[in-house]
Amino acid sequence: MIRVFVVAASPVVRAGLSAVVATSSKLTVVGSASDLDTFTKEFEQLQPDVVLLDVSGHFQELVWEKLLSSQQPYPFAIIILTDELDSINFEAALRAGVRSILPSISTESEIVAAVEAIALGLVVLHSDTIESVLPFKESSVREKDTSPVVQALTPREIEVLQMLGSGLGNKAIAKRLNISEHTVKFHVSSIFQKLSVSTRTEAVTVGVRLGLIML
């Protein structure tokens, strides 16, 4: 069961988001708060896996200030709901530990899917945010151009890694690329070795962080 804590200034929004989370049998709401300070006081006792943050108006500025001031990585995944996508510094957000940024108008199914995905270590961005993230992705690739990890991955391996990020199995990848399943297994094994990971989730997570793929 994935443990979720809801933070929102409005009691109505908190109740609504808690109800949305409760629609999934894989999720459970362990608590809610009107601000991050209150959440911090309850964190050790509740131990959530995911923190669902609704930010709006001046509350958004307070949230970013709090998140970016942390000197250590957070022991939980963060998902942001906002009505001001244009004002978000995506690079700073991702580096601060935010693993999903969704518009406030996201559907119940989109929110639930995002919570479940980031709990598994994935990064989830709404389609409306892709254009804003592209500059970050491109700069990340340029920064990593001299990295042996990026240079080691072949174009085909990056293609396979992208399909792993889409949740495809070996058989589906083989059919999509018109290659044998044995060849897919070889590529996956090579990706694991080059990225120093042992699972598909870890490989996708590292791939996103390096700017190799975009979910």
Rank of each mutant, 00 (worst) to 15 (best):
S140I: 09
S18L: 08
A77C: 03
S166Y: 14
D86H: 13
L68Y: 13
F186Y: 12
D54S: 15
V30M: 03
L134V: 08
E44V: 05
V115G: 03
I118T: 04
H126R: 13
S104D: 06
V63L: 14
S87C: 10
L210Q: 09
F5G: 09
Q151L: 12
S100G: 15
R14Q: 06
V197W: 12
G167N: 07
T107Y: 00
S196N: 15
V55L: 12
R142A: 08
K171S: 12
L120D: 13
I79S: 10
M163S: 02
F192Y: 15
Q193H: 14
L215S: 10
I158S: 03
S196A: 13
L122A: 11
A119E: 07
D49M: 10
S139D: 04
G121E: 04
Q45I: 01
A117W: 05
K171A: 14
L81V: 05
H182A: 14
S104H: 09
I179S: 03
P75S: 05
R99E: 11
I179N: 06
Q162S: 15
V184W: 00
I105L: 08
I179F: 06
L81E: 06
A152G: 11
E91R: 14
T38M: 00
R176S: 10
L67G: 07
D37V: 03
P73C: 07
G165V: 01
S109V: 09
A96N: 06
T201C: 00
K194A: 06
F90H: 09
M163I: 00
T40R: 13
S190L: 08
E65L: 12
K194D: 07
S34R: 07
A93N: 09
E138S: 09
S139C: 02
A22D: 05
M1H: 04
L52V: 10
V197F: 13
G31P: 11
L168W: 12
V6K: 05
L195G: 09
K144D: 03
I118G: 00
D54N: 15
L122S: 07
E202R: 07
S87D: 14
